[in-house]
Simulated assay, not measured.
Amino acid sequence: MIYIVPKPTDTPTDNSTGQVISELEKAGAGYGILDLDSLDPLESNLERELIWACGIRQNGHDFEALNVLALDNCVVNTPESIVTCACKVTTTALLLRQGVNTPRTLFTPSCERARSFIEECGKVVYKPLYGFDGNGIRLITDVADLEAPPWYLQEYVWNDRDFRVFVIDGEAVGAIERVSDSLTHNIHQGGIGRALPVDPEMASIAEAAARAVGIDYCGVDLLLDGRDYTVLEVNGTPNWHCMAAPIPKLLAGFLIGKEREMRS
């Protein structure tokens, strides 16, 4: 049995959970739905089960509920990796530790250090520490434009598009290019996506980013910095809009294989 935590942002026309469930049904795999709001993780009676969290809300309850469930079960993605991806500072630290190319970044509560960084870079991108869907990202040229510290700031890399690469079990399986006239090219912010082949350089850096954060599957967001790709962030509960690769089928196959491994 595969237990599923549905994505809270699913809609009838954009149902990530439902797409994977459909593939599980085609494969004859048994599954059940877990509602974290109604489940008491301290008395769940679940043990040695596979739990797939298609998505969770970024709040203490959902994170802690998954953490408790992970004590006696296999949770995909692990709560630790979801939290890591939700925190931009930790993600950046892990990328740097593993030598994965990422824009020059500063995390600080110091106005003086922020001012110096902005002056050195000319333009920086401010990102909320725990943001999602491109919300709250702004271009900053003056420290006076910043609100309350601490601040996560990245050197601005000129671009007119970005790329998302979907990685499952260490392998880059699909990619899209996202284009818009705004600072962020996220589809939730009006970006237009189109599928494209995964080139070797794109695959290499996306797979390295997934290894760096220790995650089963993810969406890795990239920019081209000159001729090289650089990692913007790693998404622990990613969408797969516009991808030509059959992501729901691939995810379902990964989950079925994972559960079989547990039973063998």
Rank of each mutant, 00 (worst) to 15 (best):
V83I: 13
C85Y: 04
C87M: 04
K88N: 03
A93T: 15
A93S: 09
L94T: 05
L95Q: 06
R97E: 15
V100G: 03
N101Q: 08
N101Y: 05
T105E: 11
T105A: 10
L106A: 05
T108V: 08
T108Q: 09
S110N: 15
R113A: 11
A114I: 06
S116F: 12
F117R: 09
I118L: 01
E120G: 07
V124S: 08
K127C: 08
P128R: 10
P128H: 12
Y130G: 02
D133F: 11
D133S: 13
I137E: 13
R138K: 10
V143Q: 10
D145M: 13
A148H: 09
A148D: 11
P150W: 12
P150A: 12
W151I: 03
W151T: 01
Q154N: 01
V157P: 06
D160M: 00
F166M: 12
V167M: 10
V167Q: 09
D169M: 15
E171Q: 11
A172N: 08
A172I: 03
A175M: 12
V179I: 13
D181L: 09
D181C: 06
S182C: 09
L183F: 04
H188W: 05
G190V: 12
G191R: 07
V198Y: 04
D199H: 00
P200H: 04
S204A: 08
A206M: 06
A206G: 05
E207K: 05
A209E: 04
R211F: 07
